[in-house]
Simulated assay, not measured.
Amino acid sequence: MTRSQLILLLGASALVVILFQLPRSVVENEQLQEVTETESHSMEIPQEVENQINELRRLINQEENVDKKANFAHSLARRFLDYGAVDSAARYAEVIQLWVQRPSELVADIYFIAYERSSGPEEAKDYAVKAREVLQKLLEKDPTNLVLKNRLAMTLVVSENPMAGVSMLREILAQDETNRQAILNLGLLAIQSGQFERAKERFENLVSLNSADHEAKLYLAVSMMEIDQQSQARLLLEEILATQDSIPAIKMMANDYLNSL
């Protein structure tokens, strides 16, 4: 599979949009209460989800408790993010910040996912900056939170000092050598920079830790395909497709890769 085919297939999924917004210089080695929403969405929103959105709007409007109101707004923003309405979701991050008047994990979550699912690198960098500002404040209060630290690291890899993000991911593994998100992030960075053998090692590690980690299996298969281990990759892809608990997006990508072999 060529690099352009890899980008085309992986880039079609929100799971790994972030991968192709990272600078290629990053290598994983030792060196308001009323929100005006956009009407354009990258995917059609099913009626069931539209009903959920309307119900969450109603709850936001009638709720007086600020924290509950913020939780409803966060849930609404996540619905928008699931269907590609990044700008609409980001507006809710802004109003949550106005309501709570403190660094909020809800705000950081919205901005980080907006960063992952942005349609282009400039938009992604803008949301990465917003996410980073909140994450840094949250980590000042809770420096041991590795979930926040993983996210901060991934916003740093699109900053002017991308290796700071890679170093932070390594710090996380020094604290917790089985930290799934840090291993996954380093594996994705290795794929992005063309270090497929290194990526393979990362994803093999994840699969050894959890044989039901279908996302790791998918990326392991991608790495194998790039180093001409097609038969092993095929077995992994077939395994993902045969498993009922694989999430639909991963199955779709596995099927696309299998068809390309």
Rank of each mutant, 00 (worst) to 15 (best):
Ser42Met: 02
Phe112Arg: 06
Asp109Leu: 08
Tyr83Leu: 10
Met154Asn: 07
Thr178Val: 09
Leu135Ala: 11
Ala221Asp: 02
Ser260Arg: 05
Val49Gly: 01
Gln244Asn: 06
Ile96Val: 08
Val147Pro: 04
Met163Ile: 06
Leu138Asn: 04
Ile250Val: 13
Ala233Gln: 04
Arg180Gln: 09
Asp67Gln: 14
Glu94Phe: 09
Phe72Glu: 03
Glu44Pro: 00
Arg151Ile: 07
Ser119Val: 10
Thr38Gln: 04
Tyr115Gln: 07
Glu197Ile: 13
Gln52Ile: 01
Val166Ile: 14
Met168Arg: 12
Thr243Cys: 02
Tyr219Thr: 05
Asp228Ala: 07
Ile60Gln: 03
Asp109Val: 05
Arg78Lys: 15
Leu8Phe: 08
Ala233Tyr: 00
Asp245Ser: 12
Ser119Arg: 12
Leu6Ala: 05
Leu139Thr: 01
Ser246Asn: 07
Leu6Arg: 01
Ala108Asp: 05
Leu209Trp: 06
Ala216Gly: 05
Arg151Asp: 11
Glu63Leu: 06
Ile45Asp: 03
Ile45Leu: 00
Ala212Pro: 01
Ala131Phe: 11
Gln47Trp: 03
Glu204Gly: 09
Glu215His: 07
Pro46Tyr: 06
Ser159His: 13
Gln136Trp: 10
Leu98Met: 13
Arg151Glu: 12
Leu22Glu: 11
Arg117Asn: 09
Val222Gly: 03
Asn150Gly: 12
Tyr83Ile: 10
Leu188Met: 15
Leu188Ile: 15
Leu156Ala: 05
Pro121Tyr: 10
Phe196Glu: 00
Asn145Tyr: 04
Ala199Thr: 01
Glu55His: 09
Val166Leu: 14
Ile113Tyr: 09
Pro103Ala: 12
Ser231Leu: 07
Ala254Met: 06
Leu139Ser: 10
Asn161Glu: 14
Ile110Pro: 00
Arg198Gln: 15
Gln21Val: 14
Phe80Asp: 02
Glu30Gly: 02
Ser223His: 08
Asp213Arg: 10
Glu34Tyr: 08
Ala90Met: 11
Glu28Gln: 05
Glu37Ala: 04
Asn210Lys: 14
Glu116Gly: 06
Ala233Met: 05
Met43Thr: 00
Gln175Pro: 03
Ser13Ile: 13
Leu258Gln: 03
Leu19Met: 14
